[in-house]
Amino acid sequence: MISKEDVKKLANLSRISVSDEELESIPGEISAILDYVSQIDKAVSSGAPAVTYPLKNVMREDANAHESGVHTEAILNEAPKREGEYVKVKKILG
Protein backbone atom coordinates (compact mmCIF):
# COMPACT_ATOMS: atom_id res chain seq x y z
CA MET A 1 0.00 0.00 0.00
CA ILE A 2 1.40 3.37 -1.05
CA SER A 3 0.97 6.17 1.49
CA LYS A 4 0.67 9.92 1.02
CA GLU A 5 4.23 10.22 2.27
CA ASP A 6 5.42 7.72 -0.39
CA VAL A 7 3.69 9.77 -3.10
CA LYS A 8 5.32 12.97 -1.83
CA LYS A 9 8.70 11.26 -2.01
CA LEU A 10 8.01 9.85 -5.52
CA ALA A 11 6.78 13.24 -6.73
CA ASN A 12 9.94 14.85 -5.43
CA LEU A 13 12.16 12.24 -7.08
CA SER A 14 10.22 12.75 -10.35
CA ARG A 15 10.39 16.57 -10.07
CA ILE A 16 6.60 16.86 -10.20
CA SER A 17 4.57 19.14 -7.94
CA VAL A 18 1.40 17.51 -6.57
CA SER A 19 -1.63 19.40 -5.30
CA ASP A 20 -3.20 18.57 -1.92
CA GLU A 21 -6.28 17.35 -3.75
CA GLU A 22 -4.25 14.88 -5.84
CA LEU A 23 -2.40 13.69 -2.77
CA GLU A 24 -5.76 12.21 -1.74
CA SER A 25 -6.45 10.31 -5.00
CA ILE A 26 -2.98 9.25 -6.24
CA PRO A 27 -2.02 6.81 -3.40
CA GLY A 28 -5.11 4.65 -4.06
CA GLU A 29 -4.63 4.68 -7.85
CA ILE A 30 -0.95 3.75 -7.71
CA SER A 31 -1.63 1.07 -5.07
CA ALA A 32 -4.30 -0.52 -7.28
CA ILE A 33 -1.94 -0.62 -10.27
CA LEU A 34 0.98 -1.99 -8.21
CA ASP A 35 -1.33 -4.59 -6.71
CA TYR A 36 -2.35 -5.69 -10.22
CA VAL A 37 1.20 -5.87 -11.63
CA SER A 38 2.48 -7.69 -8.52
CA GLN A 39 1.10 -10.96 -9.94
CA ILE A 40 4.32 -11.21 -11.99
CA ASP A 41 6.08 -11.97 -8.73
CA LYS A 42 4.43 -15.41 -8.63
CA ALA A 43 5.20 -16.15 -12.29
CA VAL A 44 8.95 -16.12 -11.92
CA SER A 45 10.25 -18.41 -9.21
CA SER A 46 13.02 -17.00 -7.08
CA GLY A 47 15.45 -19.49 -8.56
CA ALA A 48 14.76 -18.51 -12.18
CA PRO A 49 17.85 -17.19 -13.92
CA ALA A 50 17.75 -13.49 -14.74
CA VAL A 51 17.54 -12.96 -18.49
CA THR A 52 20.06 -10.58 -19.94
CA TYR A 53 18.30 -7.94 -21.97
CA PRO A 54 19.17 -8.15 -25.68
CA LEU A 55 19.25 -4.41 -26.43
CA LYS A 56 22.35 -2.36 -25.78
CA ASN A 57 23.42 1.19 -26.46
CA VAL A 58 25.19 1.64 -29.76
CA MET A 59 27.28 4.70 -30.45
CA ARG A 60 27.79 5.68 -34.05
CA GLU A 61 30.94 7.28 -35.42
CA ASP A 62 30.65 11.05 -35.45
CA ALA A 63 31.31 11.19 -39.19
CA ASN A 64 30.19 13.84 -41.70
CA ALA A 65 29.60 16.40 -38.96
CA HIS A 66 27.51 19.36 -40.11
CA GLU A 67 28.98 22.85 -40.18
CA SER A 68 29.17 24.31 -36.69
CA GLY A 69 26.28 26.56 -35.78
CA VAL A 70 23.90 25.81 -38.68
CA HIS A 71 21.18 24.44 -36.35
CA THR A 72 21.84 26.71 -33.38
CA GLU A 73 19.20 29.31 -34.07
CA ALA A 74 16.38 26.80 -34.77
CA ILE A 75 17.16 24.83 -31.63
CA LEU A 76 17.64 27.82 -29.32
CA ASN A 77 14.36 29.28 -30.56
CA GLU A 78 12.61 26.35 -28.86
CA ALA A 79 14.12 27.09 -25.44
CA PRO A 80 11.67 28.86 -23.10
CA LYS A 81 14.41 31.35 -22.11
CA ARG A 82 17.61 32.25 -23.88
CA GLU A 83 20.34 34.84 -23.71
CA GLY A 84 22.34 35.18 -26.91
CA GLU A 85 23.57 31.71 -27.79
CA TYR A 86 22.87 30.33 -24.31
CA VAL A 87 19.87 28.62 -22.75
CA LYS A 88 18.99 30.67 -19.67
CA VAL A 89 18.14 29.11 -16.30
CA LYS A 90 17.89 30.43 -12.74
CA LYS A 91 21.13 30.33 -10.77
CA ILE A 92 21.99 26.89 -9.44
CA LEU A 93 24.60 27.71 -6.76
CA GLY A 94 23.26 29.81 -3.89
Binding site: A11, S14, I16, S17, I26, I30, V89, K90, K91
Partner: peptide, 26 residues
Amino acid sequence: LLEDYMKTRGELLGKEVRRRIMLGTY
Protein backbone atom coordinates in the same frame (compact mmCIF):
# COMPACT_ATOMS: atom_id res chain seq x y z
CA LEU B 1 15.36 26.26 -10.55
CA LEU B 2 14.00 23.30 -8.56
CA GLU B 3 10.59 24.97 -8.39
CA ASP B 4 10.79 25.65 -12.15
CA TYR B 5 11.11 21.90 -12.72
CA MET B 6 8.41 20.96 -10.21
CA LYS B 7 5.86 23.49 -11.45
CA THR B 8 6.55 22.96 -15.17
CA ARG B 9 6.12 19.18 -14.90
CA GLY B 10 3.37 19.34 -12.27
CA GLU B 11 1.22 21.90 -14.09
CA LEU B 12 1.90 21.28 -17.80
CA LEU B 13 1.85 17.47 -17.87
CA GLY B 14 -1.54 15.77 -17.61
CA LYS B 15 -2.67 13.38 -14.91
CA GLU B 16 -1.96 10.08 -16.68
CA VAL B 17 1.51 11.18 -17.78
CA ARG B 18 2.39 12.23 -14.22
CA ARG B 19 0.96 8.98 -12.86
CA ARG B 20 3.10 6.87 -15.20
CA ILE B 21 6.24 8.87 -14.41
CA MET B 22 5.71 8.30 -10.67
CA LEU B 23 4.84 4.63 -11.17
CA GLY B 24 7.97 4.17 -13.31
CA THR B 25 10.09 5.96 -10.75
CA TYR B 26 8.72 3.58 -8.11
